[in-house]
Structure formats: structure tokens, C-alpha cells
Amino acid sequence: MTLRPPVEPMLAQAAEAVPGPAALRAGVAYEQKLDGHRALLFTAAGPGGAVLVQTRRGALVQDRWPDLVAAAEAQLPPGLVLDGELVVWNTDEGRLSFEALQRRAATRARAAAALVARWPAYFVAFDLLQQDGQELLARPYAERRTLLENRFSDHALTAPWTFCPQTTDLAKAREWLESWTDVSGVEGILVKPLNSRYLPGYRGWTKIRRRDTTETIVGAITGTLTRPQLLVLGRHDTDGRLRAVGRTVPLRPDAARQVAEHLTAATPGHPWTGAKFSATWGSRDVLDTTLVHPNLVAEVNADRAIDHGGVYRHPLRFQRLRLDETTQDVPRFGAGPSAAAG
């Protein structure tokens, strides 16, 4: 059977740490988890066919990636389906950029071509779902990975095609998690059973994001002063303005009581007066917030998915209030996940 879009990609469930010995004995591989957009790429099955790029949710967006389409037509054989991650390199800053990726993903047709030189796209392949028109979903992951490696070596593929790093060495995977996540664009690792089939839509893999403890300033809450539900957090920029950096997940009852004891209502002139805060990153839904006096320092646990400006894309986990610190001790906006002072 020949695969045709939309094909629902196989997914991963989140975990806090590398799976235990029982899971490891069954045989797993570790891949670097990149901070990009999941995508499937289909090469033409026959003469006159088109190269297709499919998002995780099934939309076809090849018009937004003319550089990838041209490279696929020139370098990839027909009847191929790759699973991987789309990333974008910002040539002005010399780094991977999620913001540039978002811009390219939202730009179509003629305007898309104008962005190629400044923000070239790369496809980081980690799975092979079809080759020579024959689908491979029932093959074990280890076999699909070997076929993918052979495909790269046989065709001497180079940019924009990149092979996702993989290892079966647990020590190496832990090194990636601790060290490589300091590199822009790498946010953790994926754990994949070597004998697993490719199951569309099934969360059969495990993802582990690097998380760090850092400090932020409480600028607003949802709920009430006596029963806060979640915190909206900020940091001062270099001009001294309080800039929103994210929100927490809902507070546990004990944490909510702790925070409530120290909250005070905002006075006139709060820096966020009139501001609206998204319920989730990229969402149009807004939170129903109450502004509070921005003098409390909250220690939070955060992953490495951060916009270049300093905004966390995923909710933060409240750890505790740092009553021993002032807002001047908090890292500046854009400083990233600077570790807590202890």
C-alpha cells in the first residue's frame, strides 16, 4: 500500500526522567528532541507528481517551504515518506530560531520564497515510513532506522536534509540531556523501543525535556487574592519594564495557600494595566486575571522552549516563593533559564 496524506504521525508521552531498568532491558534508542515543527515529507510516487509537506495535524503546507520542495525534487528518490522535524536557521544571528520557523510557517507562496535566503529551512529526519512506494509501518523501529541511514549514505544527502542523532548508550543520552540542551534548538531526548512498529496517533515513544529551576516575578493571578489558581509571571527588561514571560500550571492547594498569604492587590500604575494574557502560547483565548503588586519572587521549574525574546512557550511549574530574594535578584528578561541562586 502506498501512503498518502494525511498520515497521522506517531507521538510521544512526556516523562520526567529516563525510563527505568525494565524498559531499558527491552531495548531502546535515544534521539535528540529538537524544538521545531513536526512534519511528514512525501516525494512524488510517479512522473508529474508533487512533493508534499504535511503538518502534524494533517495540513499540506509545501507552498510555504519552496526550498525544501526544490531540494526534494533534486535529491530524493520517488515514493519516499520521511518523518521528522522542520527547523529554521537564522543567518543574521547564526542559530536555530523558533521565531523564524513560525514566521516561515505562516507565510505562503510568493512571500515564502523571499524568506528562504534569510531563514533557510532544514528537515531533520528521524524515521522512514515508506521507500520505493512500499510502506514500512509494520517494520520495527530499528529496521526503519537502518533503512533511513542507508538512504542517507547511498544518496549522499546533505543540507537541507539532516539525520537526527541517535544512540543506544544511556550514558550518552544523559549527556545529551544535560549538555546538548544548552544548544539552541535542542530541548531534550526521545526514547523509542527498538522493536516498536510505527503506530499513527499512538503515544508509543517517551519525551524528556530538560528542565531548570529559575526565578520570576509574580505580576498577576487568576482566581482571587485568597484563592489564586495560577500565576502570571514576569521579568524586568534592561529598561526596568516588567515583561510577561509565562504562566504556571494550576497551583496545588498547599502552594495556593502559601502564595495567598503574601499577595497584595495592585496599586494604580501597575505596568500591566490593560494588558491581556493568552491562556496558552499562541492561543487567542485570554486569561481572566487580577493584577497584584509585583514584589513577590517565585521559583519555578521550566523547560528549554523559550522564544528569543524570553517568553516560555510551555506552562511553568511553581516550586516556592523566594521571600529571601527581591525582584532585583531575578534574571533579566531574555536571560533564559538561569539557575536559581540556591
Rank of each mutant, 00 (worst) to 15 (best):
P66E: 03
A114H: 07
R144A: 05
Y30T: 00
G36H: 02
F123W: 05
V28Y: 03
A23P: 07
R118K: 04
A17I: 11
R38L: 05
A12V: 01
P19R: 05
Q13P: 09
Y122L: 15
L147F: 08
V116A: 13
A142T: 12
Q102H: 12
R139P: 10
A50V: 12
A39E: 06
E85K: 02
A121M: 03
P21W: 06
Q130A: 13
W65I: 15
R108Y: 04
Y141D: 03
V28M: 03
A71S: 11
W89G: 11
Q102I: 10
D132H: 08
Q134I: 13
L60A: 14
G48P: 12
A29V: 07
P78I: 04
P47L: 06
F42N: 04
R103E: 09
A70G: 01
G36D: 01
D67W: 04
R95L: 00
Y122N: 14
A109H: 11
D127K: 03
D127M: 05
L129H: 04
A100W: 00
G36K: 01
Y141A: 14
V28F: 03
T43V: 02
A72F: 05
T158M: 10
R145M: 05
H37M: 14
K33A: 10
F152Q: 12
D154Q: 14
T55M: 04
D63A: 15
L11W: 07
R144G: 08
L148H: 07
L41A: 06
T107D: 10
L115D: 00
A17M: 12
L101S: 04
A117E: 11
L128E: 04
A50W: 08
R139F: 01
P66A: 11
L147I: 10
R56I: 07
A156W: 04
E143K: 02
T146F: 11
E149V: 14
V51I: 13
L76V: 01
T107S: 10
N90E: 12
A113S: 13
A39H: 01
A50R: 09
G58S: 02
Q32Y: 08
A138S: 13
E73W: 07
T91D: 02
P78L: 02
T158R: 11
